[in-house]
């Protein structure tokens, strides 16, 4: 990947792939802005969360924890636990970025959200992306997220409660789409269902932040176990084939 022509092509490709995420983020962050200001967070502080954190689920959770009167230390620990799932994202995509310059990795990491990961994740290991592609994806999404928050926080009170309530479904709908875009085989579906089961059990037991990490580990292990057992022409350990799509 040398020369400006190829990196320009990568940039355009990245922006094209960023469009669905940007279009999905915008109403979602508008919703976040509306919800946060409706619960008494000042407009500037609502905008600040999107600029600084850039992690949807954690931001929605921050507002509800703050409103519930949770202590600052407990809020910070809980939200960082929720975002601990990003360790799995970095380590999953990381091998594809071995040839990247160190500086580029530090820049791209800022935009490694659930959606950016889900879009990059599966194909990155087969075909490592160019830095320009990944930057376009990450910062296009970031721009949309911040812009939507500003709009939502500013128009805040003008949105009818019924509409705001339906808009909150944008987040689960986005997760469903990301999941079913790539989980088309039985072991992957089983991994998702196992992850969901563990997370629901953890939340029911009063440990919601632990549930996402535990669900990820348990679900992935279940999926891998199933794939290994049912794989045709299984070979002894050490000769395992590379992960397929």
């Amino acid at each position: 990947m040398t020369g400006s022509a190829s990196s320009r092509a990568a940039l355009i490709l990245g922006l094209r792939d960023a469009v669905p995420i940007m279009l999905a983020y915008f109403p979602l962050s508008v919703t976040y802005g509306v919800l946060a200001t409706a619960r008494g967070i000042p407009v500037w502080a609502t905008d600040l969360t999107s600029i600084v954190i850039f992690a949807g689920a954690a931001q929605f959770m921050l507002v509800s924890l703050y409103v519930a009167g949770t202590s600052p230390v407990s809020m910070t620990v809980t939200l960082l636990l929720v975002n601990l799932r990003h360790v799995l994202y970095g380590t999953t995509i990381g091998p594809a970025f071995t040839s990247w310059r160190e500086k580029h990795k530090w820049i791209a990491a800022f935009g490694l959200t659930d959606e950016v990961f889900a879009l990059t994740g599966s194909q990155a290991l087969r075909e490592p992306p160019a830095p320009a592609y990944e930057f376009a994806l990450a910062f296009g999404s970031y721009l949309s997220w911040v812009a939507g928050t500003v709009v939502g926080a500013t128009v805040g009170g003008a949105v009818p409660p019924a509409a705001a309530s339906a808009l909150t479904f944008a987040l689960p709908a986005l997760f469903l789409s990301l999941l079913l875009n790539q989980a088309r085989r039985v072991p992957q579906i089983v991994a998702a269902v196992a992850g969901a089961g563990v997370a629901v059990a953890a939340q029911a037991a009063g440990l919601p932040s632990f549930g996402i990490v535990a669900g990820a580990v348990a679900g992935a292990s279940t999926g891998l176990a199933l794939a290994t057992i049912t794989a045709p022409g299984r070979r002894p350990a050490g000769h395992v084939r590379m992960a397929r799509d």
Partner: peptide, 22 residues
């Protein structure tokens, strides 16, 4: 290789874990 394959199942598992409680 086995770790890479395990990591490939992390995405659906995380999305499931986010979706289940939601």
């Amino acid at each position: 290789a086995w770790l890479k394959q395990w990591l490939s199942f992390v995405t659906p598992a995380v999305l499931g874990a986010l979706l289940g409680p939601a």
